[in-house]
Structure formats: C-alpha cells, structure tokens
Deep mutational scan, measured.
Amino acid sequence: STGEEYIAVGDFTAQQVGDLTFKKGEILLVIEKKPDGWWIAKDAKGNEGLVPRTYLEPYS
C-alpha cells in the first residue's frame, strides 16, 4: 500500500489496543489520516496501528 513517510518527534506508548508504539526518530508510513487526529500508520517492521498526528512531522 502507498502512504506518506513521517518521522516521529517523540516517543509514544500505546494506550489502548490498536495503538502503535514508536520511538522518537522512527520513520512511519501513514496510510490514512483520520479527522480526529489519530492516523493509521505502519512501522518498519510492518506493524500497523493508530498514532497521534501531533507526534509526527513530514519526512523528506
């Protein structure tokens, strides 16, 4: 699937089932941008889950 690459600007630990845990500096592939501010993203290992958009910045 296609998506946009974003870099994590902080650590995030999953708070509920379906969230994706990530560390600062990780590159995430954003698959869907939901209007509530929680985006669906995939990490380098292929894990998929919800992430808070405030922790992400476009990666170029």
Score class of each variant (00 low, 15 high):
residue 1 S to P: 01
residue 1 S to E: 12
residue 2 T to W: 03
residue 2 T to V: 02
residue 3 G to R: 13
residue 3 G to Q: 13
residue 4 E to M: 13
residue 4 E to F: 13
residue 4 E to L: 10
residue 4 E to I: 12
residue 4 E to P: 07
residue 6 Y to R: 02
residue 7 I to E: 02
residue 7 I to Q: 06
residue 8 A to M: 05
residue 8 A to W: 00
residue 9 V to W: 01
residue 9 V to M: 12
residue 10 G to Y: 03
residue 10 G to W: 04
residue 11 D to R: 05
residue 12 F to E: 01
residue 12 F to P: 03
residue 12 F to H: 14
residue 14 A to T: 13
residue 15 Q to A: 11
residue 15 Q to T: 13
residue 16 Q to A: 11
residue 17 V to D: 03
residue 18 G to W: 05
residue 18 G to T: 13
residue 19 D to L: 13
residue 20 L to G: 01
residue 20 L to Y: 01
residue 23 K to N: 14
residue 23 K to R: 09
residue 23 K to Q: 09
residue 24 K to Y: 02
residue 25 G to Y: 06
residue 25 G to Q: 10
residue 25 G to E: 11
residue 26 E to C: 07
residue 27 I to D: 02
residue 27 I to E: 07
residue 28 L to D: 00
residue 28 L to W: 00
residue 28 L to G: 01
residue 28 L to F: 14
residue 29 L to W: 12
residue 30 V to C: 04
residue 30 V to K: 01
residue 30 V to G: 02
residue 30 V to F: 01
residue 31 I to R: 11
residue 31 I to Y: 07
residue 31 I to M: 11
residue 32 E to V: 06
residue 32 E to L: 06
residue 33 K to I: 11
residue 33 K to P: 04
residue 34 K to V: 06
residue 35 P to S: 10
residue 36 D to Y: 12
residue 37 G to K: 15
residue 38 W to T: 15
residue 38 W to Q: 15
residue 40 I to E: 04
residue 40 I to C: 14
residue 41 A to N: 00
residue 41 A to W: 00
residue 42 K to P: 00
residue 42 K to D: 03
residue 42 K to G: 05
residue 43 D to N: 08
residue 43 D to V: 01
residue 43 D to T: 07
residue 43 D to M: 03
residue 44 A to I: 06
residue 44 A to K: 08
residue 44 A to F: 10
residue 44 A to Q: 10
residue 46 G to T: 06
residue 46 G to H: 06
residue 47 N to W: 09
residue 48 E to M: 11
residue 48 E to N: 02
residue 49 G to R: 01
residue 49 G to M: 02
residue 49 G to Q: 01
residue 50 L to K: 14
residue 50 L to V: 07
residue 51 V to F: 01
residue 51 V to R: 00
residue 51 V to H: 00
residue 52 P to A: 14
residue 52 P to G: 15
residue 52 P to H: 14
residue 52 P to Q: 15
residue 53 R to C: 03
residue 54 T to E: 15
residue 54 T to Y: 07
residue 55 Y to C: 15
residue 56 L to P: 00
residue 56 L to M: 12
residue 56 L to C: 06
residue 56 L to G: 00
residue 57 E to G: 03
residue 58 P to D: 12
residue 59 Y to G: 12
residue 60 S to D: 09
residue 60 S to F: 11
residue 60 S to L: 05
